[in-house]
Design a protein around this nucleic acid. Sequence first.
DNA 1: AAGGTTCGCAACCGCAAAAGC
DNA 2: AGCTTTTGCGGTTGCGAACCT
Length: 314
Amino acid sequence: MGGHSCCSKQKVKRGLWSPEEDEKLIKHITNHGHQSWSSVPRLAGLQRCGKSCRLRWVNYLRPDLKRGSFSAEEEQIIIDVHRILGNRWAQIAKHLPGRTDNEVKNFWNSCVKKKLISNGLDPKTHNLISNSHNNQRTSNINKAAPENKKSNNSIFNNLDFQPENSNAPLEIFNKNFAKLPASCTTTFSTSGSHDSTNFPNGLLMIEDTPNVYSSSTSTILNPASLENCMWDFSGEPFEGTMHEFQQKEQEITCATRIIDRVNEAKGCPETINSSFDQSSSFDFGILESVLTSDLSCCDDQSSMDYYDQFPWNF
DNA sequence: AAGGTTCGCAACCGCAAAAGC
DNA sequence: AGCTTTTGCGGTTGCGAACCT
């Protein structure tokens, strides 16, 4: 028992790889590639199963891997993306060039998780642990009376939102934020390219670069249709439908009134400033990292209509 | 110094999706 | 269309190193 299901007939070596085995694998793959992992062990002269070879290559031998400890920037990206995606390590790793899903997962389990816990945050939801009852309340709201949502299905109309972790007056947020499903992420660029004095600390400026992070993050989600809409995530189909997202009841995130902000930012940044200046105690950085999306579809009235068609399920 | 405990990481396992036939 | 094989993923385990008592 305990053998690999993929190679039960062969006698295969297990456990740590020796330098000789590594060398054989590297040599074989650099010379011939890996058309089929199941045939790699035989062709490379290794007493391993294909799965083991693949894992060794992907997680350790690939030349484009970045070894060494994670930088603070990388850590922040992991936290931010995890907040949106949960334990989708492979997806998270795509935001970190040179890192593998296994590496990210190990780093999370050994380091980040503990940090979050020690900061009083639930590593699953990223919410304050003491606020978990509020989350429950929010979940119940989402479950309740779905038929009411149709009559009020604009993301900008929902005012039943209380931001986590904030000392700011509630009305500020009622005025400026709407709830979005965690899956409905929208890309903002940071305020780096702008005169940041016009914006509260951490406030996002919706702009040309559709990346939250200057590096590789690219997101977004365009629902293909209202029913069973599949979402496009980082250029690849996201694994769920809108309905599934709703069922998941992941962390509810908040967003600026996207279209209003875009329009205001284009013409009149002071409007933004004045509407946020009372809320300086709110951690806008949370928003910055959570909200990601391609706003190219949001720069006119038609895109406003576009968003308003969504079956927002608040 | 020795034994026990914790930590970090590489590797394994089982499952599901995708691909091939 | 249905079965088999392959691939990819997330959870978990096992082991060596570091740390603690």
